[in-house]
Simulated assay, not measured.
Amino acid sequence: MEEARGARARAALDTIPPDDAEFVESGLELVSDGVHTRSSLIKGKPYKVSAVCVGTGTVSLVIGEREPQSIACDGVSVSRRVQNAPEELPIEITAASGSSGMIAWQITAVPS
């Protein structure tokens, strides 16, 4: 079941191949494990962080110092733009109580 959810989550993102110049980083995690990463970026450049959850319940997405954004585990991707990136961008995705499934996430550079 989790393998199918993972495939759905990856498919829901506008995935960019790793060899594309805009690709920075991506991942696929169990909702129960969450995402806890610090991505190295080029300071001052714009980026897009996209995430999707497939399963049940909700997860909370926190990018850097921004307010948390709730994401339903309904297979619909959300994106947030980071206009003036720091050298290291923390990204935290944590599950609400009772949530399960898979989370796919991706960081891409925004052409300027």
Results as ranks from 00 to 15, higher is better:
101 G>Y: 05
109 A>H: 10
39 S>V: 15
107 I>G: 03
84 N>S: 13
90 P>G: 11
44 G>W: 03
112 S>N: 11
110 V>A: 08
54 V>G: 04
102 M>R: 12
13 L>A: 00
12 A>Q: 07
11 A>D: 13
78 V>S: 14
33 D>M: 05
55 G>W: 06
36 H>L: 12
87 E>N: 15
107 I>Q: 03
28 L>D: 02
102 M>S: 13
38 R>T: 14
82 V>S: 04
77 S>Q: 09
44 G>V: 01
51 A>Y: 04
16 I>S: 09
56 T>E: 15
31 V>M: 06
63 I>V: 15
103 I>E: 05
102 M>Y: 04
64 G>E: 06
111 P>K: 11
6 G>Q: 06
104 A>S: 09
95 A>T: 09
68 P>R: 07
7 A>L: 13
96 A>W: 02
103 I>S: 07
39 S>N: 03
84 N>Y: 12
81 R>D: 13
39 S>D: 09
44 G>H: 04
47 Y>E: 05
112 S>F: 03
93 I>K: 05
36 H>P: 01
111 P>Y: 00
5 R>D: 14
45 K>S: 13
31 V>G: 07
47 Y>G: 05
103 I>T: 07
23 F>N: 02
98 G>M: 08
93 I>C: 07
103 I>G: 03
52 V>G: 00
8 R>N: 08
104 A>N: 01
9 A>G: 10
99 S>H: 07
9 A>H: 07
63 I>P: 02
15 T>P: 00
51 A>P: 06
65 E>R: 13
112 S>D: 14
73 C>D: 08
47 Y>V: 04
59 V>T: 09
105 W>S: 00
74 D>H: 07
77 S>G: 02
56 T>L: 10
12 A>S: 13
6 G>A: 14
46 P>G: 08
43 K>D: 12
55 G>I: 05
91 I>T: 11
54 V>P: 02
97 S>C: 08
42 I>H: 12
99 S>R: 05
108 T>C: 04
56 T>P: 01
111 P>S: 12
42 I>T: 13
29 E>S: 15
75 G>W: 04
8 R>T: 02
88 E>A: 14
89 L>I: 07
51 A>C: 12
78 V>E: 11
40 S>H: 10
72 A>M: 11
49 V>Q: 05
97 S>H: 10
17 P>M: 02
4 A>W: 09
26 S>L: 03
13 L>W: 01
47 Y>S: 04
76 V>N: 14
74 D>S: 12
33 D>F: 07
7 A>S: 14
23 F>C: 01
58 T>S: 15
84 N>K: 12
54 V>Q: 02
20 D>V: 03
61 L>T: 06
